[in-house]
Design a binder for these strands. Structure first.
Length: 278
DNA sequence: CTGGGGATGGGGCCC
DNA sequence: CGGGCCCCATCCCCA
């Protein structure tokens, strides 16, 4: 059961396969890495490259476009599945993109647009689109708002584009996606495991996890039970222990009303057959 | 099978 | 933005 509302989870809640990660740390590619995905830190930013073919239908454009603003009413709801980081094209770094041929030679970015019966060619680079018709326009590739000026489009991309506001940051080691960069960086630590125990070499994602582990070496148990003499190295384990002192267990079987101190014990109880209907 | 301890993972929150 | 901590969850093991 995912607790986080920040993470877009496509996978079941599983622990990382650290044996694979170990091999990756030795320079071997992880089997879960997806080199063709657009990834943080080394790939283009969201919306930098045409999204997909389903986006090829150009919305109607108002012939009375304002000079430096979007055509009125040209707003398009954001599909939940849209992820500007997902790039069907081979990933490009910023430097690679900068080294691309001129837009008109950039065939996979070219879209043909019918504009009031006048065929035109729309080219895009780095998420910006301009039409090559006699009436020059600059169209946001993500939301398709059209602008007469490049600066108008640039301003839109920077401040207004609703697609830009829906960035997802995808992990380059697995399929997880996050809505914040900080959350992604936190997650990436679970792959890189930068905190290594000097005593046994075991690696952890965060310093406090390492601290807890070191207590298993030192025997330090700073969390004492106020009801008995027991002490624990981990606060969570103390909390679980405190449940054993409670007359009222937190988790109750729906069938026999028996209560348990932990959800895992209740689950075991139910799986053992007390609640065959559940 | 049950109950509980030990160890660990991971996202959120706060500073 | 990063570190530290909190909280919850889970797995493993043992009595």
């Amino acid at each position: 059961m995912p607790r986080s509302f920040l993470v877009k989870k496509h996978l079941s809640h599983k622990k990382p396969n650290y044996s694979m990660l170990d091999s990756e740390k030795r320079g071997e590619p992880s089997s879960c890495s997806k080199p063709n995905l657009l990834h943080l830190n080394e790939r283009l930013q969201p919306g930098s490259i045409p999204v997909n073919s389903s986006m090829s239908s150009t919305p109607p454009q108002d012939p009375d476009l304002p000079g430096d603003g979007p055509a009125p009413g040209h707003t398009y709801p954001l599909p939940a599945s849209h992820n500007p980081f997902r790039n069907p094209q081979p990933s490009l770094t910023l430097l690679e993109a900068a080294a691309l041929p001129q837009p008109l030679e950039h065939n996979h970015s070219v879209r043909h647009v019918e504009d009031g019966g006048v065929p035109s060619v729309t080219v895009s680079l780095l998420g910006l689109t301009s039409t090559g018709s006699s009436q020059e326009r600059f169209e946001c590739f993500d939301c398709h708002k059209a602008y007469f000026t490049f600066s108008g489009l640039a301003k839109h991309r920077q401040l207004q584009c609703e697609w830009q506001c829906q960035k997802y940051f995808s992990c380059k080691y697995c399929d997880k996606e996050y809505v914040s960069l900080g959350a992604l960086k936190m997650h990436i630590r679970t792959h890189t495991l930068p905190c290594v125990c000097k005593l046994c070499g075991k690696a952890f994602s965060r310093p406090w996890l390492l601290q807890g582990h070191i207590r298993t070496h030192t025997g330090e148990k700073p969390f004492s039970c106020p009801h008995c003499s027991r002490a624990f190295a981990d606060r969570s384990n103390l909390r679980a222990h405190l449940q054993t002192h409670s007359d009222i267990k937190k988790y109750q079987c729906r069938s026999c009303s028996k209560t348990f101190s932990r959800i895992s014990l209740l689950s075991k109880h139910e799986e053992a057959g007390c609640c065959p209907m559940s």
